[in-house]
Design a protein around this nucleic acid. Structure first.
Lengths: 148, 148
DNA sequence: CCCTGTTGTAATTACCTTCATTACATCAAT
DNA sequence: ATTGATGTAATGAAGGTAATTACAACAGGG
C-alpha cells in the first residue's frame, strides 16, 4: 500500500506558490494546470494547507501565498497537514486477535511500540527536509537548464 | 493512507508458528482462530511468506514451519514479502506534471531522491528488528502473566 | 450595483484495494 | 478411498482516491 499522491501534489503546489506568488496570482486553476489534476482536488489540498497555517488563500479575488518562510515548512508539516491518519498510526492493525491465545492477546501490545518507533524514524526524516531544500534543488536544476 | 494490516497479520502468524510449531500442527485454520481473520487470507499470507523462503508449508498433511532462525527474520524481510511494492515506491506520485511549467517538469526528479531517502530510513529501521525480538518481548509478557 | 473570476463545498461517478466468503481442485497420509 | 489440509479462483461489500459537475459565497472592477 502506498501513501497517497496528494502528498506530492501538496509539495508541488507549495513549490509553485513559492516560485510564482510574487509574479502572478496563483489560483487553483493555475495550479491545476501545472500539477495536471482537477482544480477541485487542488482546492481541497489548499484548504488542508490553510488549516495547517502553511498558506493563506484570498477568498474572493483569488491567489495563494506562503504563510511561513520556506525554511520553516518541513516535509513533515506538509505530510501531517495532508494525511488524515486514523489514530495517527502508519501501520494498520488487525482488529480482534484471539485473547485465549497467548500470542493473540499479547501481539498488539508488543508490536505497537516497535511499529511506532518505525513511524517516528520516518517522521524525523521528513522533518529534516524543508520546502527551502526543494526550492534550492529547483533553482539548481533551472540553472542547469539554462546552460543547455 | 495506511499500510495494510496484512503486515501485522504476517508478524502474528510468524510468532504463532515459532511458538507452536514444536507442540502442534500449525494449520491455516488454527492461525485463523488466533488472528481472527478468514482462513483464506491466512493461506495467501502463508504463500507469500513461503515464496520469500521465510517458512515451509506441508502440502497434503498440513502445518507451517519456520525456514530460518527467528533472529535472521527481520521485520523488513516480512514487510517486503507481504507488501507488493517491489518496483514501486512508498510514496505515490501524481502522474503527469506539466512539462511547460518550470516546477512541473522538475518536481519529479527533485522529490524522487528525497522520498527514497525517507523510505530507506524506514526500511533500515525495519531491518534492525527481528522475529527473535518479538518472541523475546512475548516471553517477557507471558512470564509477567504467570506472576499474576 | 451588478458582473466577473475565484474560492468553498456538496454530490455523483468510476475505479481500485482490502478483506470476507464460498467453492473446489490438489495433495499426502492413513 | 477417505480424510484433512493446502492452493487458487471468483464474487461481493466496504472504504478510499480522484475526476467531474454544479453552485453558493465572496471580493473587486467597471
Amino acid at each position: 500500500m502506498q501513501i497517497s499522491s496528494r502528498f506530492t501534489i501538496a509539495l508541488h503546489v507549495l513549490a509553485c506558490i513559492a516560485v510564482f506568488e510574487k509574479q502572478l496570482k496563483v489560483t487553483s486553476a493555475f495550479l491545476s494546470g501545472s500539477v495536471n489534476v482537477n482544480a477541485v482536488i487542488i482546492r481541497n489540498i489548499l484548504l488542508q494547507l490553510k488549516a495547517a497555517e502553511l498558506i493563506r488563500v484570498e477568498r474572493g479575488t483569488g491567489g495563494a501565498y506562503l504563510e511561513q518562510p520556506a525554511d520553516e515548512i518541513s516535509l513533515l508539516d506538509v505530510y501531517k497537514a495532508i494525511e488524515p491518519l486514523e489514530k495517527e498510526t502508519l501501520f494498520r492493525f488487525h482488529d480482534n486477535p484471539n485473547p485465549r491465545c497467548p500470542v493473540g492477546r499479547n501481539i498488539h501490545g508488543i508490536l505497537d511500540q516497535r511499529l511506532l518507533d518505525v513511524q517516528n524514524t520516518m517522521e524525523n526524516e521528513l522533518q529534516s527536509m524543508t520546502l527551502a531544500d526543494i526550492l534550492s534543488d529547483l533553482t539548481t536544476k533551472l540553472q542547469k537548464e539554462k546552460k543547455e
